[in-house]
C-alpha cells in the first residue's frame, strides 16, 4: 500500500478557555476519525521544551494551526520556533468570541459547534492538501509528536 504524505495539524493547548478545548477536540477528531491516515500532530508545548525534531516540524510537514482564541498561540509559536505554517484556523473567527473566549467549564461542547468547526477545518485541510507539493518534502512519516511513554 502506498504511503500517503501527511499534513501537520497543531492545536493550541488551550487550558483556559472553551475555544482551546474545541481546538484540541477537533485536532483529536482529525487524528482519530476525520483524516486518520493524513494527519500528524505534535504537542505545542514540545516546541518550547523540545529538541530539533519538534522544531523542524513545520519544515517537514505542510502545517495547519488550530487556535482557540485571538491570541493565536499555536500559530505564533509554530512560526516563531518551527517554520511558516500554511494556514491558521482561528476558532474565534469561525465560532465567535462568545463561544471561544468563555472560561473553561465542565459543559460538553455542543454538536453544532463541532459540525461548524469541522466544515471549516476540513475545507482548509483539503485545500492545503491539494496545494502541497509532496515531492519536495522529506517527511519522516511515522513521527508521533509526543514524548509520552507507554507505561501502563
Amino acid at each position: 500500500m502506498e504511503e500517503r504524505p501527511k499534513i501537520g495539524v497543531i492545536s493550541c493547548s488551550g487550558e483556559k478557555c472553551t475555544g482551546g478545548s474545541i481546538a484540541r477536540m477537533i485536532t483529536r477528531k482529525m487524528l482519530d476519525t476525520w483524516r486518520p491516515h493524513d494527519v500528524v500532530t505534535v504537542c505545542l508545548p514540545l516546541f518550547i521544551a523540545g529538541g530539533s525534531e519538534e522544531r523542524t516540524f513545520a519544515k517537514d510537514f505542510p502545517t495547519i494551526t488550530i487556535d482557540g482564541c485571538k491570541k493565536k498561540c499555536a500559530y505564533r509559536i509554530t512560526e516563531k520556533l518551527s517554520g511558516k505554517v500554511n494556514a491558521c484556523v482561528d476558532l474565534s473567527e469561525v465560532l465567535g468570541d462568545e463561544h471561544c473566549e468563555s472560561d473553561i467549564n465542565h459543559e460538553p461542547i455542543s454538536e453544532d459547534l463541532i459540525i461548524k468547526t469541522k466544515k471549516e477545518v476540513l475545507q482548509v485541510f483539503d485545500r492545503i492538501r491539494a496545494e502541497a507539493n509532496f515531492k519536495e518534502l522529506k517527511q519522516s512519516g511515522n513521527y508521533q509528536g509526543c514524548g509520552c511513554v507507554d507505561e501502563k
Partner: peptide
C-alpha cells in the same frame, strides 16, 4: 495549575483533566 496538555497520548489528557478538576 499548569498541565502539559499533551495531545498525542492519554498522559496529556490526564494532566489536563486533573488541572481542570482542581481549578473548577
Amino acid at each position: 495549575i499548569l498541565p502539559c496538555s499533551g495531545i498525542g497520548k492519554v498522559y496529556g489528557l490526564l494532566s489536563r483533566e486533573a488541572a481542570h478538576k482542581v481549578v473548577l
